[in-house]
Design a binder for these strands. Structure first.
Lengths: 241, 241
DNA sequence: GTCTATAGCTGGATAGAC
DNA sequence: GTCTATCCAGCTATAGAC
């Protein structure tokens, strides 16, 4: 025990097959992800999390410093991977046949890494949706740190693919895209209730197959030649159609 | 003071100009709405709410029974009014020139009552967005009780206006519409950050002026003749364009 | 109807054994 | 690295004076 290289100790323990031998740290992260996504960051106690992980609050504080630290750790575990895969897929779009890339490809590159299985799977998706909805200073900060660069690149790519669409329109369409993504991830179940379960946004495959073409089409629609300037407050749609 | 009709006492007090004379009940509801929408239902204590209202937790429990009761009261205060105004506007669409009604009118009838000033204003909007995102059993139940009927009518009206659109497509488009609405109400500020504030979903007029035509257009798009059945998992867009 | 005071818990975080 | 035990702050809800 004395000669063990210190920086390897944790890894070694993780490799030992026994479930109990699996690093406590990982089990806490998993439990936290599950419970945070279900009840929100203020809806669960550290005690509940560590109990589910078969540990106790002292262990959590040892590994993550505080409850806030744990939340950030859960986020950080997969967030960077998603941003990276998004960028990789976006780069792949650019280098393919059919340049300029299809809008469908860009949209899919944005949505898929966060919705499919690779980076924490469905569990992390729900967690992410929940956090976005929570909208505290901490979560805004986390999103900014991990996703601003990547998301900015997508806005740019979309603007390039749609040179005739005014930036203001593009931004609002992208806002709708984000809303659709977050709402799908958070999944309040409204559409299931309203349609008797026919529609299931909790299934990532069904969600992507439906969202990608729908949102690409939304982006592709001609600019709404609104009769009003972006800021003029009142309506009266002089719509001749 | 002795001869005051009991059932009028609260109202009288509300009319007396002094801010302290305004019914405590109302001040607690206002404070709760503001703080719940900012920090979530688990992120604020009853003490914080009543302190902001210039009262104390005992008063809140007297009026609402419990913290949960207070949350429901805040929701109930304006929710029914929104559902009613939605239905009124929908009926007005049907009886107007240009029947079948324009999609824009239907979409506006759905969005405007909840986003404009009438029913609790912007404060209640944020509260509602926040609650939807919280997605607990209580909030799901509240939404179902107050909005299922009305929202079902809108789905029906949209299906009538779009007889050629398969129900499955309609449901997913409506899901996106709900997502855009909720995301706008909850307002995590992502699009402001990403566009340097050029786009402001917190302004109800700007939001409606942009969302209504965009979402109407989304609904109006031709059905995506997906080469895959709704459930087939894998991609390969045989898109010849 | 509104207050003060407090009962009764539960929470996050830490000390210190192993 | 993980545990038990514990401190103490903060919470909801209630009792009882006014």
């Amino acid at each position: 025990m004395t000669a063990l290289p210190l920086e390897k100790a944790g890894e070694e323990a993780a490799i030992a097959g026994d479930a109990r031998g699996e690093a406590t740290r990982q089990r806490i992260l998993d439990a936290a992800q599950r419970l945070f996504s279900e009840h929100g960051s203020n809806g669960v106690s550290l005690r509940a999390i560590t109990a589910e992980a078969g540990a106790n609050s002292a262990a959590a504080n040892y590994h993550f410093g505080s409850k806030t630290g744990l939340l950030e750790a859960v986020f950080a575990r997969h967030a960077a991977g998603i941003a990276e895969e998004r960028d990789t897929m976006l780069r792949a779009c650019r280098e393919e046949i059919g340049r300029p890339p299809l809008l469908e490809q860009i949209v899919r590159a944005f949505l898929e890494p966060g919705m499919r299985g690779q980076h924490g799977g469905h569990g992390f998706s729900r967690f992410r949706g929940r956090l976005l909805a929570e909208n505290t200073e901490q979560t805004r900060d986390l999103y900014a740190r991990y996703f601003n660069d990547s998301t900015g690149q997508f806005l740019e790519a979309l603007q390039n693919a749609l040179p005739d669409l005014p930036a203001h329109d593009l931004h609002w369409r992208f806002h709708v895209l984000l809303g659709a993504m977050v709402y799908t991830l958070a999944n309040p179940g409204r559409i299931q209730v309203l349609t008797g379960g026919e529609c299931d946004p909790a299934d990532p495959d069904q969600a992507l197959d439906n969202l990608v073409p729908m949102l690409a089409q939304l982006l592709r629609n001609p600019a709404m030649t609104n009769t009003k300037s972006p800021n003029s407050p009142h309506e009266l749609n002089t719509n001749q159609a």
